[in-house]
């Protein structure tokens, strides 16, 4: 049977992708950010999964315009890196595990998550930056990737509690897939940031650190942070943290924290990153 063995959370700042693509990792500005990912780059070598279920939000690259699904799953065999206005990132094609994606879709609907299937889309920095941070710059990504998109940009956005339940439903779906697969769930985005107006550049280190403190072993109260509270405390884009909750819920009750990292700034954003191994 398939099983979820580990989870990773990370911010997915586009400038981090550009820094990797342009070879700036050792620059004074970027070195402290990339240092925080040295652990996971080593860890993943011994813990490369068969499939990553990668939870991210599309940034007006494939969604948000004509169709705005609350939860959606990538259902193409493969996905190209999106041209977000400066050309496609030079990264490998992202290859799906279509049978597992189909099984998850079927199970999610049984579990009352009426998920949208996307037959064609390009994937933007929200998905490709986490892959680059963890796997570096390989010729091919070393595993299959199932994109799961959450609307965190256009209100009404889903609640943290709903995202938690989605994570639980993904966990139940994976556990009932008959093939022997090692699956990881990654939650991306955050931490605090706001990208417009007189509050642009907002960073709430206290909020972010508390979120990381509680996520591993006391995540209950994080489920009930309202969308309004995210806006007030963590900026308009800080709400992306609800995607970390999908990851955490998918890992089940107990986790072992292997890594935590927090750094300000990367461009406009507070960078957060954790690595968890599932205990059960």
């Amino acid at each position: 049977m398939a099983r979820i063995t580990a989870g990773i959370a990370t911010s997915h700042v586009p400038a981090i992708g550009a820094a990797i693509d342009l070879g700036k990792q050792k620059d004074l500005y970027w070195a402290p950010v990339f240092q925080g990912y040295e652990f996971v780059k080593e860890w993943i070598k011994k813990n490369t999964p068969d499939v990553v279920i990668l939870v991210y939000n599309d940034h007006a690259s494939a969604l948000m315009m004509d169709i705005i699904p609350t939860f959606a799953i990538g259902f193409a065999e493969e996905f190209l890196s999106a041209d977000e206005g400066w050309g496609r990132r030079p990264v490998p094609v992202v290859k799906n595990h279509i049978e597992l994606a189909a099984h998850i879709s079927e199970q999610l609907v049984i579990d009352e998550f009426d998920i949208t299937l996307i037959n064609e889309m390009d994937v933007d920095h929200g998905l490709t930056v986490p892959l680059s941070l963890v796997f570096g710059q390989p010729e091919e990504w070393p595993c299959k990737v199932i994109p799961v998109c959450v609307n965190v940009s256009q209100f009404p956005t889903p609640s943290g509690e709903r995202c938690w339940k989605l994570g639980e439903a993904i966990r139940n779906a994976v556990k009932t897939f008959p093939e022997d697969l090692d699956v990881q769930v990654w939650g991306t985005g955050g931490m605090s940031h706001q990208l417009h107006g007189s509050r642009a550049g907002l960073i709430n280190e206290e909020f972010d650190r508390k979120f990381i403190d509680l996520l591993a072993h006391e995540p209950e109260e994080l489920k009930y942070i309202t969308r309004l509270e995210y806006l007030r405390e963590a900026g308009t884009e800080g709400i992306e943290l609800i995607m970390w909750l999908v990851m955490r819920a998918a890992l089940g009750y107990g986790v072992e924290e292997k890594k935590r990292f927090y750094r300000v700034p990367a461009s406009n954003t507070a960078v957060g990153h954790v690595v968890y191994e599932a205990k059960s």
Partner: peptide, 17 residues
């Protein structure tokens, strides 16, 4: 703005509501 970000970003105190 870049300097503010390097110094830890904009503090939310006083601008929540």
């Amino acid at each position: 703005y870049a300097k503010m970000m390097l110094e830890g970003g904009r503090n939310p105190a006083g601008i929540r509501s």
